[in-house]
């Protein structure tokens, strides 16, 4: 699992490349925490994320809650069919701001 960061205006876009599971989630969480120190608008781009387990969902939830607590904003986008199904069944698509595409995610993000 690699995390590639890019910025667009005041938004930080993090691309998760690979599999976000029990093995990779702890390191991903640590990396995301570093970005949280200096960013208030974060988008997780899952275009290259093959699979997300419940350990991965925990990283999404933690990021959403930390940003909410500090007055920041969080979005997820580009989930593939498998990941979208996981987001739907777990109900995460009800509690997180999930967008279909990166274009949608960067639009009106405030």
């Amino acid at each position: 699992m690699d995390i590639v960061s890019t910025t667009k205006e005041d938004m930080l876009i993090l691309d998760f490349v690979g599999q976000l599971d029990t093995g990779t989630a702890p390191r991903a969480e640590m990396e995301v925490n570093k970005y949280l120190e200096s960013n208030q608008k974060i988008i997780f781009n899952l275009a290259k994320t093959v699979f997300v387990s419940s350990a991965g969902l925990r990283v999404f939830l933690g990021t959403a809650k930390k940003l909410k607590a500090s007055g920041g904003l969080f979005r997820i986008c580009n989930a593939n069919e498998v990941v979208q199904e996981i987001l739907d069944i777990s109900g995460f698509s009800q509690i997180l701001d999930v967008k279909k595409s990166l274009e949608e995610a960067v639009t009106n993000f405030n």
Partner: peptide, 13 residues
């Protein structure tokens, strides 16, 4: 039918 998200994730569900 899904009646809500996983338990303990978010308050006020």
């Amino acid at each position: 039918t899904l009646h809500g998200p996983v338990v303990a994730a978010m308050e006020d569900i």
